[in-house]
């Protein structure tokens, strides 16, 4: 079963996304912030990670940077609020699979996620 990690500080976002992907036979892990995500990743190896850029505790970009420093090459899709060329160029250099803009319809997200998870299989 493919494993998906959703990192977002909005509990509603986590809950409903989890619910949605679980219905598609995907093992969904959630984290409410960067720190929690990092600790999960110490034990787990998800196939894909949805990472929100702007979060209170530890931002998405910082989390990404830490992971890459640690040599963790997990596939990551960044979820951003606004198109910010500075952020985009940084996350691209750190190596991400892609980025999507909020607000995003679930079926659009499904297509992207399925494509990435499907590629793995």
């Amino acid at each position: 079963m493919p494993k998906l990690l959703i990192v977002d500080d909005e509990s509603d976002v986590r809950e409903f996304a989890k619910n949605f992907f679980q219905k598609r036979k995907i093992d969904v892990l959630t984290a409410s912030g960067g720190k929690e995500a990092l600790s999960i990743l110490e034990k787990e190896t998800p196939d894909l990670m949805l990472l929100d850029v702007r979060m209170g505790e530890l931002s998405g970009v910082d989390t990404l940077r830490t992971l890459r420093k640690q040599g963790n090459q997990v596939k990551i899709i960044m979820v951003t609020g606004v198109e910010d060329p500075e952020v985009i160029s940084e996350v691209e250099s750190l190596g991400v699979t892609g980025y999507v803009h909020k607000p995003l319809a679930l079926d659009e997200l499904e297509q992207i996620v399925m494509k990435e998870l499907g590629r793995k299989e």
Binding site: D12, V13, F16, A17, G81, K102, P103, A105, L106
Partner: peptide, 14 residues
Amino acid sequence: INNRLHALGFIAGD
């Protein structure tokens, strides 16, 4: 607001 909309979208979508 964007985050609210985002969550709302997910709730409706799910």
